[in-house]
Amino acid sequence: MNGITEDDLRSALREDAGTAWATDEGWDRIRGGGEKQRGRRHNRFVIAGATLTAAAAALAGVLVITDDGGDRPITAEQPEATCSASGTDAVLADGIAEPMRTTAASLLEAASACDYDALRVLMDTGFTYAYDDVTPDEAIELWRDQEDRGIATLAAIVGALRTQPFCLGLESDPPKTQCTWSNVEVGIGVTADSTGAWSVYESSGDDPNAVQCQTRLPNGPTVATAPGMPDAVLETANEIVAASMRCDYDALRALMVDDFGFSLTEPADADLAVEMWRLEGVGEGSEVFQVLVDRLVNGEPVQNSEDLQWAWFEASVAPTPLAINPDGTWANFSD
């Protein structure tokens, strides 16, 4: 376990965790608080129902007799809602393609108006909360609860939507375009795609779409090659670069042998290696993609006389290679 034993870890965590005891008073507080939360949720439905009834009555021109003998139409006026996003300057960046622009504009309008009901309706076109696997209703309830407790969730969403999005085509079935807006300061982002679906993610999550692809080609736009390199090897090297430029983990995985060797995984396992790259990529600008591109473009390819693999070395960065088998399958990578 690399110089640390499981016993050490367990002991340290136990010591650090300290001790705490359950009390009858504590349980009474939980029951009281839990009932209160339950009541608040119930009241939301009651208020929503009353609002709908009043709105319907107003639309139908119904009049009611008031205590002072006068009459006036029922109106559905409610106090203006406030939340962390109230009064924010809700403007989208220029140049966003439809229908992502419309989705984002609707989200921006609903969030900055603190209109949870409108947000909930917008979820009907397809919504995921990438960090926790929650339903739309649960997401709305979570955000409302966070706002109640002073957590500026809606402001964070609005803050994301005001940034310049990164849009890219996805090789799904059917193909679609997806735009990603990131509020890097607080680690929240929003995606919207050409099907009308959208999501909110937290940047410490696992959503690969949360990462903006920032891979850049270094000097020299072609893969470094050498005399005698088979076409299959060169083709795979080019595909690795192309996939890295799109930050496409799945495309990389398709090129890898199942027992792919990665410097930080033991035993060799392609899925585990990709999983680790995803984890490293989140919040760190997809560094592995840039390393792969740099290695293949700047590195020096040589053929191993024993296994005939073609290996790209970049001696100034790492003493170990990125290697491709003669048949074009990708064998290993060390960073």
Binding site: G26, I30, R31, G33, G34, E35, Q37, R38, D145
Partner: peptide, 12 residues
């Protein structure tokens, strides 16, 4: 932990 219990209790 109190909040977690309250939320779970509310959704029991």
């Amino acid at each position: 932990v109190q909040d977690a219990f309250m939320r779970t209790y509310a959704a029991r």
